[in-house]
């Protein structure tokens, strides 16, 4: 029928050695794979970005679009909408893999699960957080925000949205396969988003009040570093718990 099957010499890896390339190979694997999968369903990304635009455009309709009022609520609206957009796209992080059985293979890989999860979270940020960060200043113009606050808004979002993906990753893993996953995820994660919201929106407020946003941005930066170190471990633990 076909040539004799190549008889695989059953060599197993040295018992607990990390495979070649260590954590960066693992991070790159899940990053590239998740981006490829995301690109194959690009329309879904577009819809989630549209969600952000629509939510932001709703608020002026709900209040009188008088410029000074809009400028005052602008940062808050753009930030809360960024939180909701991140929340909306979190199920994509693990639920697909959980459903089709690939999450088991990822958890059973000799590569460290923490690095594989970090790659997935980075892919989520690139497809959800980054587009929102690039879009927010454009929408800020709708809110009569001046150039300087738009710049600070973009900077705060650039530092803040990765934290949203990192914390969100923990919540997404905890609620894998549960009933009412979406709203449960919101209840679990939004309280943890509060500090990011406060310092993120606060940065723009501080600039408008002339205080300068360095304090807020540096606190956000510190938050990002802590989240980058801690969140992958919590998310990996949550994945293992979900697979039990």
């Amino acid at each position: 029928m076909n040539t004799a099957a190549p008889v695989p010499a059953p060599a197993s890896l040295a018992d607990s050695a990390l495979p070649a390339g260590g954590i960066f190979a693992a991070l790159r694997w899940s990053l590239v794979r998740d981006l490829k999968v995301a690109m194959r369903s690009r329309s879904e990304l577009g819809v989630q970005l549209l969600f952000y635009i629509i939510v932001v455009s709703l608020f002026p309709l709900a209040s009188n679009p008088e410029r000074t009022l809009l400028a005052a609520i602008g940062p808050g609206v753009l930030w809360v909408a960024a939180l909701l957009a991140s929340l909306l796209s979190l199920p994509r992080l693990f639920a697909g893999d959980y459903g089709d059985g690939t999450l088991e293979q990822i958890a059973l890989s000799p590569h460290p699960l923490e690095a594989l999860v970090s790659g997935k979270i980075l892919a989520h940020w690139l497809t959800a957080g980054l587009p929102v960060t690039l879009l927010a200043p454009l929408l800020g113009i709708q809110y009569a925000m001046d150039g300087e606050s738009l710049a600070v808004l973009a900077a705060a979002l650039l530092i803040g949205t990765p934290i949203l993906s990192l914390l969100g990753g923990i919540g997404a893993a905890l609620t894998l396969g549960l009933r009412g996953g979406g709203s449960l995820l919101a209840l679990l994660i939004l309280p943890l988003y509060v500090p990011v919201l406060i310092f993120g929106a606060g940065a723009v407020e501080a600039v408008r009040a002339g205080l300068g946003a360095t304090a807020n941005l540096s606190l956000l930066g510190a938050g990002l570093l802590v989240a980058m170190v801690g969140a992958p471990f919590a998310a990996a633990a949550a994945v293992r718990i979900a697979l039990d």
Partner: peptide
């Protein structure tokens, strides 16, 4: 490092 697990469903994207 030693296990190949072929579960239900097949792990394919």
């Amino acid at each position: 490092g030693a296990v190949a697990f072929a579960g239900h469903p097949i792990a394919l994207k």
